[in-house]
Design a protein around this nucleic acid. Structure first.
Lengths: 223, 223, 223, 223
DNA sequence: AATGAATGAGTCTTCATTCAT
DNA sequence: CATGAATGAAGACTCATTCAT
């Protein structure tokens, strides 16, 4: 009864609460998924870690898959925003790409990226995620497109090596660090996330740069 | 007494057949696993694809996990042998590393590597595979050690950039191509496996080479 | 706030229902187990006899073993309570032991005891039930202790034969009737449960009594 | 070829060997079954303990059940022979029954009896063993008959209490010691098998004897 | 809206039994 | 005969999903 008074107000209030809860579920789910992997994570665990009932999760996400897809999308959105922010800058192409690299391999996103990798590379991805693939793929494609564009521009300005296909550059960019390797370096190698990103960047950019790399050339001619 | 010869003979025959069957299971299992991932692959499916009964699989491998571990070990063994073969060569360090790279990313091994990646990076790997981890890890460590050694040697000869930690070089080497990216480039980009390996090699070696990469240096100092 | 009361109320309601369901499962399971034995009883059958799904059983009992252990415990508890009730009485030692005997071999408990016997004597009990054995054994020990105490007291008062070790008396007490024999006598011999208990009691008590039993003594000395 | 020479001779030789092997299987099987129980014992284990192939067991016994039945029968046969030997004696009825008791609970047979009990009382016996039940039951009945006769004779001579039904006496006789209790007393109580049998005999015979058991009578009148 | 009990399809695994060699 | 590889039925257990409250 007392709820009737302000239906519109409570509507937006409820809406806000709903959104907050959804966000919380996404955060916790991402955490658990990153920790245990898709198949070892049960809806039960997510719900209990959030402190809600299992059914409530289904009130927000129609299936486990959809939950994961939502995480993908949310993170991709964030990443895209950051990337777009970078692209609009007045910096060098090289610096732009490097900034993007820092986004993805820096301490902030690497956890999320790990999750994507583990699911995206889990073999069954083709069939299993096809239904949602449209959306997922679209997000991913957008990101890939942004980076591709940057790489192409870099080639145009003569910064990047035109003899290497952009698609390969792109793949290499995405593959620079597997989740597992990351963990190794961070935990066993006690390396800071950003330091790592810096090193990887150096390898990558020297690798794709247009510099002649003449010493290499010499060694290469020897075979 | 006369049975003894027969026994050894039939023993080796049986042994051979057993080994063949086992090999067949391993092959098919590897295939299915690569296709569907660990969790989406059921022993039932492996068995029916091989054309045998479920129980027969268990005759050779005491559990699903053991089956996967056996695949790991077998492939690692092969890879290690190849790598060792390469290491013994009289080639440049650079060429040796490149040869190893071709092993791992060339048409032959990439499928296997994909499986390793998908399982190794599946998040729960730490806990789930620990029991067998000793063995698996050992195989993997051996491989990593071989490559680390090569990289260190390359640094010593001045071929590789000493300012980049070997561990990072190693990780980058292992991560050059994620299974998913590979598939993309092969299928959508219609790129030959070896061609791909060549491009990746160029990026990687230029990336870790000791060349000054002065253009890059210039752009880098600008930030 | 208004939910809090409801929550407690509904909590206890749910709790009650849960308990009822659990009790129902225990009853049916006990029945089936007694009928078919541990290994021939499948969770599926228990569930379908209760009229619920297999999973529901696992909602209450984490494993088949735990289900059986729960039955054990529940029945032991009941039995212990009855025995304790008897022990507190002002009756003769003899009468107390007889009352306990009636508990165990009377119509009420004999079914349950049968189940215990069949599992307890199933050969692999040592290994198989060890984990829970702590609890189970404890219940059983308590019962055994009560009866041992009574027997010792009986010896002290001169009612029972001090020349027979209490441990043997105890074992004989527990073994007075095997489940199978019970069934025979009840079904084929058309004997009432309590009548049977009376006869067994007579044999047992005369057997352990301190009476000289001179005829026997005579015949025994003849060999 | 060399086998052809003495087909008849070898026939009986083979026959003997076959019988020896069968006996060996029975012995080992009995051992394992007593150790692990029916359901926890696999044909595989029996075969490997005997040192033969699994299939060979099936050459002698068409099924696991049949193997167990054969053990039953063999042991029952032996027991019956001993009992018959005892019955033909010129001893007192009491002594005869006691001798039978020593057979069953003495060190020699108790292991076998344990196995019988555990299977016979395993709940599913009715349905599960029905096919063979005819035979098994027959053996058992014969034994029961012998003992019943003795008990009846004892009643006739006034040695045993005529007010207790023979069927109850018989059941009590068979139930005097459950396998589990036996183990307890032997292992924990460090009691010799024969000593135990003596104590049980004393309880049992005093229990079924015709002695007035006046002290007991006194205590009994007190309630 | 939130809950969490109930569901049941799907998986791994075991083992008695068969049969080609 | 002996073998032991192959079979496949059966059972314990999990967990995403549904739905009555």
């Amino acid at each position: 009864m007392e709820q009737k008074e302000a239906r519109t107000a409570s509507g937006s209030l409820k809406e806000k609460q709903r959104h907050e809860r959804e966000e919380l579920i996404l955060q916790v789910a991402e955490e658990v998924l990153a920790e245990k992997g898709y198949y070892e994570t049960s809806i039960d665990e997510i719900a209990s870690r959030v402190g809600i009932a299992k059914g409530t999760v289904y009130l927000h996400f129609p299936s486990k898959e959809d939950l994961v897809v939502a995480i993908f999308r949310r993170d991709m959105q964030q990443l895209l925003e950051r990337v777009d922010g970078v692209v609009c800058t007045e910096a060098t192409i090289h610096n732009k790409v490097e900034a993007v690299l820092r986004c993805m391999y820096g301490r902030f996103f690497v956890k999320r990226m790990q999750l994507f990798y583990s699911i995206y590379n889990s073999g069954d991805s083709k069939r299993h995620w096809k239904d949602h693939g449209g959306n997922l793929g679209m997000c991913w494609e957008q990101l890939a497109q942004r980076i591709s564009d940057l790489l192409e521009q870099g080639k145009a300005t003569g910064e990047f090596d035109v003899t290497i296909p952009t698609s390969v550059m792109l793949s290499a960019f995405f593959s620079l660090l597997s989740p597992r390797s990351y963990e190794r370096l961070m935990v066993e190698g006690k390396m800071a996330g950003d330091e790592l990103a810096t090193y990887l960047g150096r390898i990558y950019f020297k690798g794709i740069s247009n510099c002649s790399g003449n010493e290499n050339e010499n060694t290469r001619t020897s075979d």
